[in-house]
Simulated assay, not measured.
Amino acid sequence: MPIVPAAAPEERSAITAIDHLVVLVGDLPAAVATYQTLLARAPAWHATGDGSENVLFTLDNMSLELMAPAGSGGTADRIRAVINLQGEGLASLCFRVSDIGRMHRRLGRLAMQPDPVASVEGRDTRTGATLSWKRTRAATSVTRGVRLFFLELDAERPRSDISGTAPVTGLDHIVVSTSDPERAAALYGSRLGLDMALDRAQQELRRLMFFRCGDVNIEVVHRPVAGSDAEHDKLWGVSWRVEDLDAARARLIDAGLTVTEPRAGRRPGTRVVTVRSGTCRIPTLLVQPEAK
């Protein structure tokens, strides 16, 4: 495994949180309706341009971006190609950073081949509101195929209004599946500078690692599967927080979704259910955190 040099103090990670997840979909109105049901939240942002149409749900600690191809051109064709090849699902992970220049220097110093920092302005097509941000992206050749973006937002996004009972409050963790846990640990720990909160073997997994990112965990799992890709990791699933698991489960069942019985979560004091439909094919848990 290549040696990753320690970061100088002034170049340590500027990552503060997960900013948003991107989900590629073929039918945007259907996906919006799906996630409004799942989250019990209304869309907070609508945008179009550069070959895509986008809708964002913004929760307490991050945003979920649904992206569909729009029109013709390179970007639209690439989105369609990915959906045709892999199906709908998680496409990229974007970190919030406090200083995009410092993050860009770190990525460059650690051979992550970042794109030049771009200044972007977005406009909500429903309200006309605008937002500005700066972003960069690491080369997927060194992130084991996972698309990782880094973003410094000039102002906070508008929050999604609650549209049902027992709404999702935020992201609890995102799951990354890997066939090479040592390289994944070097990426999320040494290169990105996230704190490792857990590293252990599990009965059903060969290895399980948690990396803290703000108040969210990135859960890296090594679950040997015949025919798995040895060179590429995969954004695999998500876990959403709810304050009342039983009420959220009843709401989803009433909406026609298939949801398992509640069970104890991996973290002591938590309860979880698996949502088996209505997620755009993304493995999904709801988690009720331990009462404080």
Rank of each mutant, 00 (worst) to 15 (best):
R191E: 00
T140Q: 15
V168N: 07
G49E: 12
E11R: 03
V220H: 05
T169D: 02
R271T: 00
T136Y: 04
R147N: 13
S277H: 00
V259A: 09
R281P: 04
L110I: 03
I282L: 06
L198Y: 08
A91Y: 11
V25K: 11
R200Q: 09
V22S: 03
W240N: 10
G214N: 05
F150K: 08
S179I: 13
E10N: 12
D244V: 10
S52A: 14
E204L: 07
V175S: 09
P43Q: 05
L151S: 14
P2N: 06
P262M: 07
T58H: 06
Q113C: 12
D154L: 00
L194T: 06
A230S: 14
L192W: 00
T125S: 15
V97M: 01
G71A: 11
D124S: 04
E204Y: 10
G214F: 06
V275C: 02
A81K: 05
S190E: 08
S228V: 13
S277I: 07
E231L: 14
V225W: 11
A40W: 14
P181H: 09
D161H: 12
T16K: 13
H173T: 01
T48K: 15
M103A: 03
P5V: 03
C280F: 09
W133T: 06
I174W: 02
R276T: 08
P158F: 13
R144M: 13
G101C: 02
V23H: 13
R263G: 09
N84Y: 11
G87C: 01
E121H: 08
D233A: 02
S98E: 15
A33Q: 07
L194K: 03
G101M: 02
A184N: 11
R263N: 03
P262L: 14
H232T: 15
T279E: 13
G74W: 14
A76E: 09
L252F: 02
P5D: 02
S190P: 00
R267M: 09
P262H: 03
I162R: 10
Y188G: 00
N54I: 07
